[in-house]
Nucleic acid binder design. Structure first.
Length: 210
DNA sequence: AAGGGGGGCAACCGCCACTTG
DNA sequence: GCAAGTGGCGGTTGCCCCCCT
Protein backbone atom coordinates (compact mmCIF):
# COMPACT_ATOMS: atom_id res chain seq x y z
CA UNK A 1 0.00 0.00 0.00
CA UNK A 2 1.26 3.46 -0.67
CA UNK A 3 1.95 5.59 2.30
CA UNK A 4 0.68 9.07 2.60
CA UNK A 5 2.95 11.52 4.36
CA UNK A 6 2.21 11.89 8.03
CA UNK A 7 1.52 15.56 7.49
CA UNK A 8 1.68 18.31 4.97
CA UNK A 9 5.37 19.06 4.90
CA UNK A 10 5.23 22.16 2.75
CA UNK A 11 4.28 24.45 5.59
CA UNK A 12 5.83 22.84 8.61
CA UNK A 13 8.77 23.97 10.65
CA UNK A 14 11.69 21.66 11.16
CA UNK A 15 14.68 21.65 13.40
CA UNK A 16 14.99 22.83 16.95
CA UNK A 17 11.88 23.83 18.83
CA UNK A 18 11.49 27.36 20.07
CA UNK A 19 10.35 28.32 23.55
CA UNK A 20 7.11 29.59 22.10
CA UNK A 21 6.41 26.32 20.33
CA UNK A 22 7.14 24.42 23.52
CA UNK A 23 4.77 26.63 25.43
CA UNK A 24 2.02 26.22 22.87
CA UNK A 25 2.37 22.47 22.81
CA UNK A 26 2.52 22.16 26.58
CA UNK A 27 -0.47 24.42 27.06
CA UNK A 28 -2.51 22.55 24.50
CA UNK A 29 -1.77 19.13 25.93
CA UNK A 30 -2.43 20.32 29.47
CA UNK A 31 -5.78 21.65 28.32
CA UNK A 32 -6.83 18.83 26.03
CA UNK A 33 -4.64 15.91 26.89
CA UNK A 34 -2.62 13.74 24.53
CA UNK A 35 -4.22 12.22 21.51
CA UNK A 36 -4.77 12.65 17.80
CA UNK A 37 -1.29 13.89 17.08
CA UNK A 38 -2.14 14.42 13.45
CA UNK A 39 -4.63 17.16 14.16
CA UNK A 40 -2.88 18.53 17.23
CA UNK A 41 -0.48 20.89 15.46
CA UNK A 42 -3.27 22.72 13.71
CA UNK A 43 -5.42 22.82 16.81
CA UNK A 44 -2.53 24.07 18.89
CA UNK A 45 -1.50 26.62 16.29
CA UNK A 46 1.81 24.94 15.56
CA UNK A 47 3.48 24.67 12.18
CA UNK A 48 4.82 21.26 13.02
CA UNK A 49 4.28 17.69 11.97
CA UNK A 50 2.16 15.67 14.38
CA UNK A 51 4.94 13.20 14.81
CA UNK A 52 7.30 15.99 15.70
CA UNK A 53 4.88 17.23 18.35
CA UNK A 54 4.54 13.77 19.82
CA UNK A 55 8.29 13.31 19.94
CA UNK A 56 8.85 16.69 21.50
CA UNK A 57 6.27 16.06 24.17
CA UNK A 58 7.39 12.53 25.00
CA UNK A 59 11.10 13.17 24.95
CA UNK A 60 11.33 16.63 26.35
CA UNK A 61 8.21 18.32 27.64
CA UNK A 62 6.45 15.65 29.65
CA UNK A 63 6.33 16.81 33.27
CA UNK A 64 7.29 13.40 34.67
CA UNK A 65 10.63 13.27 32.92
CA UNK A 66 13.58 12.85 35.20
CA UNK A 67 16.36 14.29 33.04
CA UNK A 68 19.88 14.72 34.31
CA UNK A 69 22.60 12.15 34.67
CA UNK A 70 21.94 8.47 34.85
CA UNK A 71 22.78 6.84 38.15
CA UNK A 72 25.02 3.79 38.38
CA UNK A 73 21.96 1.73 39.21
CA UNK A 74 20.26 2.92 36.06
CA UNK A 75 23.41 2.16 34.09
CA UNK A 76 23.50 -1.41 35.28
CA UNK A 77 19.80 -1.88 34.79
CA UNK A 78 20.02 -0.66 31.22
CA UNK A 79 22.90 -3.00 30.52
CA UNK A 80 21.04 -5.95 31.95
CA UNK A 81 17.82 -5.15 30.19
CA UNK A 82 19.66 -4.65 26.94
CA UNK A 83 21.31 -8.02 27.31
CA UNK A 84 17.87 -9.52 27.57
CA UNK A 85 15.88 -7.39 25.18
CA UNK A 86 18.36 -6.05 22.69
CA UNK A 87 17.59 -2.68 21.16
CA UNK A 88 14.05 -2.57 22.47
CA UNK A 89 14.49 0.89 23.86
CA UNK A 90 10.84 1.45 24.57
CA UNK A 91 10.71 -1.69 26.66
CA UNK A 92 13.86 -0.73 28.50
CA UNK A 93 12.47 2.76 29.06
CA UNK A 94 9.40 1.17 30.57
CA UNK A 95 11.54 -0.08 33.43
CA UNK A 96 13.18 3.28 34.04
CA UNK A 97 10.62 5.76 35.30
CA UNK A 98 11.15 9.24 33.99
CA UNK A 99 13.42 8.09 31.17
CA UNK A 100 12.48 8.00 27.52
CA UNK A 101 13.42 5.49 24.88
CA UNK A 102 15.22 8.16 22.91
CA UNK A 103 17.20 9.24 25.94
CA UNK A 104 18.20 5.69 26.76
CA UNK A 105 19.09 4.97 23.17
CA UNK A 106 21.32 8.04 23.06
CA UNK A 107 22.83 7.19 26.41
CA UNK A 108 23.53 3.68 25.29
CA UNK A 109 25.20 4.78 22.09
CA UNK A 110 27.32 7.44 23.71
CA UNK A 111 28.16 6.16 27.16
CA UNK A 112 27.36 2.55 27.83
CA UNK A 113 28.64 1.19 24.58
CA UNK A 114 32.02 2.67 25.38
CA UNK A 115 31.83 1.59 28.97
CA UNK A 116 31.23 -2.02 28.02
CA UNK A 117 33.92 -1.97 25.39
CA UNK A 118 36.40 -0.67 27.92
CA UNK A 119 35.43 -3.54 30.17
CA UNK A 120 36.20 -5.95 27.36
CA UNK A 121 32.55 -6.74 26.79
CA UNK A 122 30.93 -6.71 23.39
CA UNK A 123 28.05 -4.22 23.68
CA UNK A 124 26.03 -6.13 21.12
CA UNK A 125 26.35 -9.66 22.39
CA UNK A 126 27.20 -8.83 26.00
CA UNK A 127 29.89 -11.41 25.86
CA UNK A 128 33.53 -11.01 26.66
CA UNK A 129 35.32 -9.93 23.54
CA UNK A 130 37.31 -12.81 22.01
CA UNK A 131 35.60 -15.45 24.08
CA UNK A 132 32.75 -16.64 21.96
CA UNK A 133 32.67 -19.88 23.84
CA UNK A 134 32.28 -18.15 27.15
CA UNK A 135 28.54 -18.14 27.30
CA UNK A 136 26.53 -21.21 26.80
CA UNK A 137 22.98 -21.07 25.65
CA UNK A 138 20.43 -20.77 28.34
CA UNK A 139 16.75 -20.30 28.24
CA UNK A 140 15.29 -17.47 30.20
CA UNK A 141 11.77 -18.02 31.30
CA UNK A 142 9.52 -15.13 30.54
CA UNK A 143 6.04 -15.11 31.90
CA UNK A 144 3.32 -13.38 29.98
CA UNK A 145 3.37 -10.73 32.57
CA UNK A 146 1.56 -7.50 32.13
CA UNK A 147 2.45 -5.69 35.25
CA UNK A 148 5.48 -4.64 37.17
CA UNK A 149 6.17 -5.16 40.81
CA UNK A 150 3.80 -2.38 41.80
CA UNK A 151 1.04 -3.81 39.74
CA UNK A 152 1.36 -1.15 37.12
CA UNK A 153 1.21 -1.95 33.48
CA UNK A 154 4.72 -2.68 32.35
CA UNK A 155 4.73 -0.76 29.12
CA UNK A 156 3.99 2.85 29.76
CA UNK A 157 1.86 3.04 26.66
CA UNK A 158 0.43 -0.40 26.53
CA UNK A 159 -3.04 -1.44 27.41
CA UNK A 160 -3.02 -4.32 29.84
CA UNK A 161 -4.96 -6.38 27.35
CA UNK A 162 -2.16 -5.99 24.89
CA UNK A 163 0.36 -7.72 27.07
CA UNK A 164 1.40 -10.81 25.33
CA UNK A 165 3.25 -13.99 25.62
CA UNK A 166 5.94 -15.32 23.44
CA UNK A 167 8.83 -17.64 23.71
CA UNK A 168 12.39 -16.91 23.05
CA UNK A 169 15.46 -18.85 23.79
CA UNK A 170 18.04 -16.33 24.76
CA UNK A 171 21.70 -17.17 24.29
CA UNK A 172 22.87 -14.90 27.05
CA UNK A 173 23.82 -15.20 30.61
CA UNK A 174 22.67 -12.71 33.18
CA UNK A 175 23.36 -14.57 36.39
CA UNK A 176 22.76 -11.64 38.70
CA UNK A 177 19.66 -10.36 37.02
CA UNK A 178 16.50 -11.42 38.66
CA UNK A 179 13.69 -9.55 37.05
CA UNK A 180 11.46 -12.55 36.86
CA UNK A 181 11.07 -11.94 33.20
CA UNK A 182 8.92 -14.57 31.67
CA UNK A 183 7.96 -15.65 28.23
CA UNK A 184 5.66 -18.21 26.85
CA UNK A 185 4.98 -19.40 23.33
CA UNK A 186 2.69 -17.33 21.15
CA UNK A 187 0.54 -20.34 20.71
CA UNK A 188 0.24 -20.85 24.41
CA UNK A 189 -3.35 -20.13 25.32
CA UNK A 190 -3.29 -19.04 28.89
CA UNK A 191 -6.84 -18.22 29.88
CA UNK A 192 -5.53 -15.64 32.34
CA UNK A 193 -3.54 -13.81 29.74
CA UNK A 194 -4.49 -11.93 26.69
CA UNK A 195 -2.13 -13.25 24.07
CA UNK A 196 -2.35 -10.35 21.68
CA UNK A 197 1.10 -9.29 20.65
CA UNK A 198 2.41 -6.47 22.74
CA UNK A 199 5.63 -5.89 20.93
CA UNK A 200 5.50 -5.04 17.30
CA UNK A 201 7.93 -6.48 14.80
CA UNK A 202 8.89 -9.00 17.38
CA UNK A 203 6.98 -12.13 16.56
CA UNK A 204 5.02 -11.44 19.66
CA UNK A 205 7.68 -11.10 22.28
CA UNK A 206 6.01 -9.60 25.26
CA UNK A 207 8.06 -8.84 28.28
CA UNK A 208 6.88 -7.97 31.67
CA UNK A 209 8.26 -7.92 35.11
CA UNK A 210 6.38 -9.60 37.83
C1' DA B 1 43.47 32.63 20.47
C1' DA B 2 41.91 29.85 16.80
C1' DG B 3 40.33 25.87 14.58
C1' DG B 4 39.76 21.04 14.03
C1' DG B 5 37.81 16.85 15.88
C1' DG B 6 34.92 14.22 18.67
C1' DG B 7 31.08 13.60 21.80
C1' DG B 8 26.36 14.39 23.20
C1' DC B 9 21.79 15.02 22.23
C1' DA B 10 17.53 16.62 19.91
C1' DA B 11 15.07 15.75 16.04
C1' DC B 12 13.99 13.54 11.63
C1' DC B 13 13.08 9.55 8.63
C1' DG B 14 11.28 5.35 7.20
C1' DC B 15 9.16 1.28 8.32
C1' DC B 16 5.89 -1.63 10.64
C1' DA B 17 1.79 -2.77 13.39
C1' DC B 18 -2.62 -1.57 14.82
C1' DT B 19 -7.17 0.43 14.01
C1' DT B 20 -11.04 1.65 11.46
C1' DG B 21 -14.31 1.87 7.77
C1' DG C 1 -10.62 -9.46 3.77
C1' DC C 2 -8.73 -5.22 2.13
C1' DA C 3 -7.16 -0.54 2.00
C1' DA C 4 -6.25 3.69 4.16
C1' DG C 5 -5.13 6.30 8.21
C1' DT C 6 -2.60 6.75 12.42
C1' DG C 7 0.60 5.83 16.15
C1' DG C 8 4.85 4.10 17.67
C1' DC C 9 9.53 2.41 17.32
C1' DG C 10 14.43 2.06 16.07
C1' DG C 11 18.05 3.83 13.22
C1' DT C 12 20.26 7.74 11.66
C1' DT C 13 21.47 12.49 10.99
C1' DG C 14 23.01 16.97 11.95
C1' DC C 15 23.92 20.66 14.95
C1' DC C 16 26.10 22.52 18.94
C1' DC C 17 29.44 22.55 22.44
C1' DC C 18 33.65 21.37 24.56
C1' DC C 19 38.29 19.91 24.60
C1' DC C 20 42.72 19.36 22.72
C1' DT C 21 46.46 20.80 19.92
Amino acid sequence: MGRSPCCEKAHTNKGAWTKEEDDRLTAYIKAHGEGCWRSLPKAAGLLRCGKSCRLRWINYLRPDLKRGNFSDEEDELIIKLHSLLGNKWSLIAGRLPGRTDNEIKNYWNTHIRRKLTSRGIDPVTHRAINSDHAASNITISFEAAQRDDKGAVFRRDAEPTKAAAAAITHPLKCPDLNLDLCISPPSHEDPMVDTKPVVKREAGVGVGVV
